[in-house]
Design a protein around this nucleic acid. Structure first.
Lengths: 338, 338
DNA sequence: CTGTTAGCGCCTTCAC
DNA sequence: GTGAAGGCGCTAACAG
């Protein structure tokens, strides 16, 4: 007894059927009589046969596996994206390997190496914040495997990017505040070297401009996305006295700011109306009536995976960027009804 | 040009060196002169060579990969465990494949099949809540690959389980409430068919008994871990009037209960003291002074991975359960100082 | 429908 | 220190 490592040859010998027929039967080829197929399957089960994908993949030069690189799986937005990816991949017969870069380029590089040497059929990647050069992606493309960027778009050898229209979402959020009577709207922004936060700021400014509100640079906070930053910003706002609206372009600091404001008995949205992103469920726990921007996370995972699979199946496919829209979820009643 | 799919044979031909020497050089074997080694490495880089792990793994019958099955990566506790797993695995030269069962046995079964056919060297698994039979794990063991259970222990063919001492944690939590003057302590429990929640209830009861407090079955809530349950329980508690302490054995409902109580102007911990688990960061956001039980998540990942790797390296290793202790984080001042 | 043959890319005895 | 030969387990022509 081969201690639980039966191969197609073991089945072949036991049944006096050639191993190629066994292989065909195991792959449910129509070119095997159902009688022998049955015999083979029975024997396989009896011997505890388990296909060796390594050998199979080596031979066919296909792994039916896609690699997913994500900055951090614990972030609510990304874990939803992953759900969408997994669902779509499994539905299409692909397996998924999830890897965390933890926003570290060196890790990202190692992961890409590893995925390549394991010959995954394609990669879905959300580039780490540190990443500025795309050198480590080139070997992958050279091997002919497609790459699709999600959430953080990249201009790289014509690869597809799936992203969210941040400008539009920000514009709508700010517009919502304005149409509810806010005149002095503060913006909690993120690092401006990152396109995403830049676009969000642009959307905010565009809305102010459209409605003829004064653009005040003091109202544009820029922070490092930390909790502490949130408290600092909240204190600043209270000092300013006249602030009546906040458009928060990042969760973490927004949450701590919200918490601080509430602890100072500021009424939301009567005193200060807030719109932020709802990637992090915490914000809606603190203030259930908060108006939020709902990003298409799950949908993003689906779209990106479909695009990738299309390209795996047809390498010559022309690619174009995919842009998804966010949705404004208005939960609170208006601040000022005209 | 082979369009970016160089093999050791390509290097071999280009240099007039046998492929076996190339293979040795690429694996940094000491039996190759440093001169030829250098030549080979240079050529490899030049041709953009990338090892084919499928072939290599097939040949050596080792993948240096461990499979991780987790019920749901978005749960804070599990994503911390994964961090610990990844860190330990990478440090030891192992890759990690993360798979979500989503608490679904059928998915879990498929994942195990897939991991087996990909010949991972071992598996770390937290069994889905649905799982009652371990049949789907047997093929894996038959192939000689070790399995280590984490968080949700199992009696299966002498496999190692790494778990947390829930009884002790619950006992300490309840004891803490008692020593701070609570006389009427309610328990938010989970499904009693799950060992974890059973042990938590036992710890609660043991503490009451030790300190001579009356055991009241009405104080033992059992729920389905939903948010709605939390609100229902909170309302019940307010009706009871005399409740002055809560030991919550699950996050989700505890959070919504906490929120509801605060909305009714119940002072925490003055009116009602609460101890719960801090797996979910939300609870500490709602009430920063909350006393919580800190579970060793990261540490669990490390311990489980080390145990698995030991067993991969030495199959004959005897295994024993590993039990970790939780820590009580007292943030609020005492309810009643004697 | 089934068997024959060959080889995916790599590693590992065994020689020299 | 290097080369020659064989095979890990599977599949894909090509025959018949």
């Amino acid at each position: 007894m081969n201690s639980g490592k039966a191969t197609i040859h073991d089945i072949s010998k036991a049944l006096n059927i050639d191993s190629s027929t066994v292989s065909r039967a195991l792959n449910n080829s129509p070119r095997v009589s159902s009688k022998t197929k049955a015999k083979i399957l029975t024997k396989a089960a009896e011997l505890g046969y388990q296909r060796n994908s390594l050998a199979s993949n080596l031979r066919t030069n296909k792994t039916n596996t896609i690699g997913v690189i994500v900055p951090r799986i614990s972030r609510s937005f990304f874990s939803s994206v992953i759900s969408g990816i997994e669902e779509t991949a499994y539905k299409n017969g692909y397996n998924v390997i999830i890897c965390q870069s933890l926003e570290d380029v060196n890790r990202e590089k190692k992961i890409m190496d590893n995925l390549l040497s394991n010959r995954v059929d394609g990669v879905l990647i959300s580039i780490s914040m540190q990443t500025s050069s795309y050198e480590h992606l080139k070997p992958f493309r050279n091997h002919g495997a497609p790459i699709v960027f999600y959430d953080r778009p990249c201009n790289f050898e014509g690869c597809t990017s799936v992203s969210i229209d941040d400008f539009e979402a920000s514009f709508k959020a700010t517009e919502h505040l304005i149409s509810n009577g806010c005149k002095n709207i503060v913006h909690f922004g993120g690092p401006q070297n990152i396109a995403l936060y830049k676009n969000r700021k642009k959307g905010y400014l565009a809305a102010l401009e459209k409605y003829g509100l004064e653009i005040n640079e003091i109202f544009c906070f820029e922070n490092e996305l930390s909790e502490n930053d949130g408290v600092i910003m909240a204190k600043e706002i209270l000092k300013m006295k006249n602030v009546d609206g906040i458009y928060a372009a990042n969760d973490t600091s927004a949450i701590s700011a919200l918490q601080y404001l509430k602890s100072k008995d500021v009424k939301i949205p009567e005193d200060i109306a807030i719109v932020g992103f709802n990637n992090d469920p915490i914000s809606s726990v603190i203030e259930p009536s908060l108006t939020t921007i709902n990003q298409p996370d799950f949908e993003m995972g689906r779209m990106a995976t479909n695009a990738l699979i299309d390209q795996i199946k047809d390498t010559s496919l022309s690619v174009r960027p995919i842009v998804l829209k966010s949705e404004l979820i208005v939960r609170s009643s208006s601040k000022v009804m005209p």
